[in-house]
Design a protein around this nucleic acid. Structure first.
Lengths: 159, 159
DNA sequence: TAGACGTAGA
DNA sequence: TCTACGTCTA
């Protein structure tokens, strides 16, 4: 399985996929459930390769080039464990490192229409800011602001 | 998605698949995690269409035309809930009904070789007997004995 | 071995 | 809403 930062050969912005398994196969995002995928860089720091925004967390879903993405852990509205403060490790740490390194992050967003849904590759983003806020369950949540790199095709849907 | 008893057009005995998602796509087995898939027949009884033997439960893995398949619920060695007696509902009830109706069941078995694995379609089986035993956790477990229908191709592997 | 924005069907 | 023989990486 490919592990790399940036664009994936053969995958175009706007490409659609039915299952997370397909994202894995083409190399866009290796995990089946994790929202944040990352690799270890030469200097030992982990950097984000891709994120999937399925709409489970309280992310900003505006139709703009800016995406607010919640960190992982402790606050999923659907898991049954009791909420906890998010920690700066694993995916969250990788997103912080990516903010500093300004490396490109592949963004995949879920598009829902009535009962069906698909994953859409939105292209490359840069993490430009992170903040720590109190989430809906009263616990600390990381919020990452990603901005879409300029010059990429618009995403359009045939309805 | 197709819901039917018996063979699936276009799928041959011995066909191999990487993911449960693919079993769903071709119509062999609709569930992503459930081991037992079933439909409601004309007279209102539920009948098994297919089972997946992933080796999670304590099934009989002999290389023969007989497969002992454990019922679902209460005794998965990997779930963290406390073991309970299995009940004759859902998949277990459907398997019992299939025993009486002698309807064909598609069998998919996991084949593991070192770290990789795949799902192999073994063809059609008939459920010929069920029993209730005390399982490894001291709780009651249904055991279903399935026999492969005669006249189907042998399964071979290139190693 | 655990953790994670999975899936479909009842 | 819940259950269920998922599936990957660290």
């Amino acid at each position: 399985m490919r592990k790399q930062l940036g664009a994936i050969r053969g995958v175009k912005v706007g490409d659609k996929f039915r299952y997370r398994a397909q994202l894995n196969i083409v190399g866009l995002h290796r995990h089946f459930t994790n929202g944040i995928d990352y690799i270890k860089s030469r200097d030992g720091k982990i950097l984000v390769t891709s994120i999937v925004d399925s709409g489970r967390y309280a992310n900003n879903m505006q139709c703009s080039d800016v995406l607010i993405y919640s960190g992982e852990g402790g606050n999923s509205p659907f898991n049954k464990l009791k909420p906890t403060d998010q920690t700066l490790e694993r995916g969250n740490l990788a997103l912080k490192n990516s903010t500093e390194a300004q490396t490109p992050v592949r963004v995949i967003r879920t598009f829902k229409l009535s009962k069906s849904s698909c994953y859409v590759y939105y292209g490359l983003y840069i993490v430009e800011h992170l903040s720590k806020e109190r989430g809906q369950f009263g616990k600390m949540v990381y919020k990452f602001r990603l901005r879409r790199k300029a010059g990429q095709p618009e995403i359009t849907f045939k309805l």
